[in-house]
């Protein structure tokens, strides 16, 4: 398993991390080594072995359908880097028409 710097840049874009060239180069080697080690999972467990996502499976976990007080908007936005009128403020997403 050997990654190229383009592979690393592609994954960084998916993960929304603006890596420096130096970080990309370091991660290329490190990720290749780690994935080569992780590749060992391919040596065992044929396709007929069912995957386990949770060791203690619980299904259809519901709470009682009773109204509960929720976090007030001003408390929920109090920790935001930028908030306005009980809303989170972000840079413009949609272009002007």
């Amino acid at each position: 398993m050997s990654l190229t710097t383009d592979d690393v840049r592609h994954v960084a874009r998916l993960a929304r991390i603006a890596l420096s060239d130096q970080e990309v180069e370091a991660l290329r080697g490190e990720l290749s080594d780690i994935l080569a080690y992780a590749d060992k999972v391919g040596e065992v467990a044929a396709a007929d072995v069912p995957p386990t996502s949770h060791a203690y499976p619980l299904r259809n976990v519901y709470r009682d359908d009773t109204p509960q007080p929720s976090l007030p908007a001003d408390e929920a936005t109090a920790t935001a880097p930028q908030a306005e009128q009980g809303r989170f403020r972000v840079p413009r997403i949609v272009e002007e028409p």
Partner: peptide, 20 residues
Amino acid sequence: VRYGLRVDGETTEQMMASTR
């Protein structure tokens, strides 16, 4: 967006990627 550090960027994606 909702909590923690923010590093400003021109677009939302740049802001997120620089923050992270």
